[in-house]
Simulated assay, not measured.
Amino acid sequence: MTGSAPAPERTAVLALGSNLGDRKGTLAAAVRAIADLPEATLTAISPVYASDALKPDGVDLTAPGYLNLVVSVLWTGEPHALLDAVNVIETEHGRVREERWGDRTLDIDLICLGDLRLDDDRLTLPHPRAAERDFVLAPWLDIDPDAELPGRGRVRELLAVAARTARAHPVAASTDPAHAEVAHTETLHDTPGRPRPGTPENLPDDQAGAEGRHP
């Protein structure tokens, strides 16, 4: 009798956000924890973006603002195993689930896992709201200019028409060191063999103007 076939290796896209506590330090630690998962190989880390808090009724300017980034990993496990793993990382960083879309020390959303389609009581893939969230689409485009959200289209095109309700924008290094530190030196880029970050400076000229992309 043979065992079950191993899960295929797929690219997972994860969106991270924090609006409570040491946002910069939390995101950096979370990226390291994701990279250390036994079935994950980190392949890219986006620049950090800032956004206003998004609640069920829309943007809440009275709530603390978010820092956001996106990472991609090669994942060789089952989808729910990745969900379980990132939920543990959230809990370890003080995530409390008392309010839908409430303020949180750490939020990690699984945006897609290859082209897998899934919809059960725990996990929907692709993420059902990713196509409308510029704070997910913009950093994702930075690390993969050809990215596609399965079933919805190219990330570049989705970002072009996405409502700017969250008004996501790149955090300038001159005003917030998180832009340079979270996605670069404070995470994994001084470690041999770790991937280089995706940054606006590395993109083709037609993508480099962040202000033109995020009015």
Rank of each mutant, 00 (worst) to 15 (best):
T185G: 05
D176N: 14
G193W: 06
T187V: 02
G193I: 13
G198N: 02
V182P: 01
P200F: 07
D190Y: 07
P192T: 15
T199M: 08
R196V: 03
H184N: 11
R196A: 12
T185H: 11
A180D: 01
P192Q: 15
T185P: 06
E201L: 03
A173Y: 01
D176Q: 11
H184T: 13
G198E: 06
G198H: 03
A180F: 00
T175H: 11
T191R: 14
T185W: 05
V182M: 08
P200R: 04
E186C: 07
S174H: 03
D176V: 11
A172D: 10
G193T: 14
P177Y: 05
P200I: 06
A173H: 06
L188R: 03
T187Q: 02
H184A: 13
P197Q: 09
L188S: 01
A178V: 03
E186Y: 06
E186R: 11
T185F: 07
A173F: 01
P192K: 15
P192I: 15
T199G: 07
T187P: 00
H184S: 11
T175V: 10
G193F: 08
S174T: 07
A173S: 08
E181C: 15
T191E: 09
R194G: 06
H184D: 12
D176K: 10
T175P: 04
P192F: 15
P200D: 04
T191W: 14
E186N: 09
P195M: 08
A180S: 00
G193Q: 08
L188E: 00
P197L: 04
T191I: 15
D190G: 13
L188D: 00
E201P: 00
G198T: 04
G198Q: 04
T187M: 03
P195F: 01
A178S: 10
E201G: 03
P195W: 05
P177D: 13
A183N: 03
H184K: 10
T199H: 09
A183M: 05
T175M: 10
H184Y: 05
P200G: 04
H189D: 13
